[in-house]
Design a protein around this nucleic acid. Structure first.
Length: 233
DNA sequence: CACCCGTGGCA
DNA sequence: TTGCCAAGGGT
């Protein structure tokens, strides 16, 4: 029996997405795409990515630009702190790393706007580094396939998912594996109406076996508004 | 630790 | 119409 990772890698070669403009071994372009794709879908990012790259073809040009120019090109994408951090990050890479992104995920994660997951993605895509990502797609795939209950945004569940994600890493082809998880989550293991009939790991999916695909991942708990009566939860 | 941040798509 | 969520990170 193939491992989870081997199955996804085999699936990715034939059924994953391959023509996306940031699928290149270039840390600058990978980084730019990863920041734009944070909480933002592929179809929304594509036109912004092209315009941005035309105006800022490399790291030095971005680092040297006024932040206002960066924000102008970002206008409409939302989450504008990402654009400010993007600009700060470009300058930090110039200052700390001589204009080249480091390969080490731990160093990447020290840069503005780059957290643990984005650092792993940049390193895996740019250098094939063996590091686990944990984004919305991976959380959805893992909670379903392994039957993990609890809101994935809560600290304890997220910690468990990180541990699981690390344990599933393949020995090689981490870049393909990383893309496979994202593609599976985006095109098959979707939030609504997942296409379990086309899923390469349907045979070992706990949620599918137990008829719980619609229940996982566990939704965010509702917030209780203050009501002045002293009632609380 | 939970919460906030922008916009667009979907039921 | 309203709610919920999407390639998360900073606070």
């Amino acid at each position: 029996m193939n491992t989870f990772a081997e199955t996804l890698i085999a699936w990715q070669r034939g059924h994953g997405r391959h023509g996306l403009p940031w699928q290149v071994r270039d840390a600058y372009r990978v980084w730019l795409s990863e920041i734009m794709l944070q909480q933002t879908q592929v179809d929304t990012v594509i036109p912004y990515y092209g315009r941005f790259l035309s105006r800022f073809p490399d790291l030095p040009s971005l680092a040297a630009a006024p932040v206002e120019d960066v924000l102008t090109l970002w206008s409409g994408l939302g989450y504008y702190a990402r654009a400010r951090n993007l600009h700060k990050c470009a300058q930090a890479v110039m200052d700390r790393h001589g204009g080249a992104f480091p390969a080490d995920p731990a160093l990447l994660a020290e840069l503005p706007g780059i957290g643990r997951s984005t650092a792993a993605a940049i390193s895996a895509f740019s250098h094939g580094t063996r590091a686990a990502i944990l984004d919305g797609n991976v959380k959805r795939v893992l909670t379903r396939c392994f039957g993990i209950d609890g809101f994935p945004g809560s600290k304890n569940v997220e910690n468990a998912l990180w541990t699981l994600a690390e344990s599933l890493l393949p020995a090689s082809d981490v870049d393909i594996y990383t893309q496979a998880q994202m593609d599976l989550g985006a095109t098959v293991c979707t939030r609504g109406r997942p296409a379990c009939g086309r899923c390469p790991v349907a045979g070992r999916c706990v949620a599918l076996r137990d008829g719980r695909v619609g229940e996982l991942p566990t939704p965010r708990p509702k917030k209780w508004s203050a009501n002045g009566t002293g009632a609380s939860r």
